[in-house]
């Protein structure tokens, strides 16, 4: 069967790999001492992608719901973990908050995409759709969650006296924290809004270019990309709002107290 795209043979991949020598030459001539790192990075690129390729081949071949859901779960766990890794300060329970937010928002949006928007797929778990969709949604949701969480912690930290003053005057915890909460949600949503503003003008999204490379007609690829943009934007917004609200509930008690002592630095004390 002829594929509608050019299949690259191993020697063609090897030809492209030769280009890494350019990086190596630059490093050597400028004495950047990056040769070793470059070599490791190049090897990791090949090994990691081959491994995931094999996993995907297998998942696509067996096409079983449990396996697809298992793979999506692992991807989600990694996204939740990574979202917290980037925050400057943490509090007990932050991992759960990030994981729940990433999980609920990205799975809800992916489910909506596969079951409603693309209601005509053969099976709801068809890996050809669920895995790339979830991958793109998770990546952006993770960014939103991580940005929102960091922004909330930062602004609660810098506005601590203001928050405490409002509480002392009889503000509810919500009234006292609503400024930092709004700021955090806005921060989490900004990158995607910016991206939606310039998409197609400044860059061609990777997914769309990928489809075009594999022989899809540009207008068909564009339709996919429009769908993706809205999926990604809504999931990131949902994830950001939920992580900020969960964090708020952890950092403010029912007795309208700001539990600032729960915030600790993620770096070991010096």
């Amino acid at each position: 069967m002829d594929a509608p795209y050019l299949i690259l043979d191993w020697w063609q991949v090897a030809l492209a790999s030769l280009l890494i020598l350019i990086n190596g030459a630059i490093s050597a001539s400028l004495r950047l001492k990056m040769e070793r790192t470059l070599a490791i990075a190049a090897i990791r690129t090949v090994v990691q992608l081959l491994l995931i390729g094999m996993v995907l081949e297998w998942v696509f071949r067996v096409e079983r719901a449990t396996i697809v859901v298992g793979l999506l779960s692992i991807m989600t766990l990694v996204a939740g973990y990574t979202a917290v890794q980037r925050t400057p300060r943490r509090y007990p329970g932050i991992w759960w908050n990030a994981l729940i937010s990433v999980w609920v928002s990205s799975w809800f949006v992916t489910a909506y995409a596969v079951m409603v928007v693309m209601g005509n797929v053969q099976q709801w778990y068809q890996p050809q759709y669920t895995i790339p969709l979830m991958g793109m949604i998770l990546g952006n949701t993770m960014n939103g969650v991580s940005l929102g969480l960091s922004a909330l912690i930062d602004s609660l930290d810098s506005q601590r006296d203001r928050v405490e003053t409002l509480l002392a005057l009889g503000a509810t915890r919500w009234e006292a924290a609503s400024g930092p909460i709004r700021q955090a949600v806005r921060t989490g949503m900004i990158p995607l809004v910016n991206m939606m503003m310039v998409v197609g003008l400044v860059n061609l999204p990777g997914m769309m270019t990928g489809q075009i490379l594999s022989g899809t007609r540009p207008m068909h690829a564009v339709n996919y990309q429009i769908v993706i943009m809205f999926l990604v934007a809504s999931s990131a917004a949902l994830g950001t709002v939920s992580v900020v609200l969960l964090a708020f509930l952890r950092l403010f008690s029912r007795d309208h107290q700001f539990l600032a002592a729960r915030l600790e630095s993620s770096e070991p004390p010096r």
């Binding site: 003053t165 509480l167 002392a168 009889g170 503000a171 509810t172 309208h256």
Partner: peptide, 13 residues
Amino acid sequence: RVPEFRRRVIYLH
């Protein structure tokens, strides 16, 4: 009842 209480008992930093 805490906010109502804090309106009556105000802490000043």
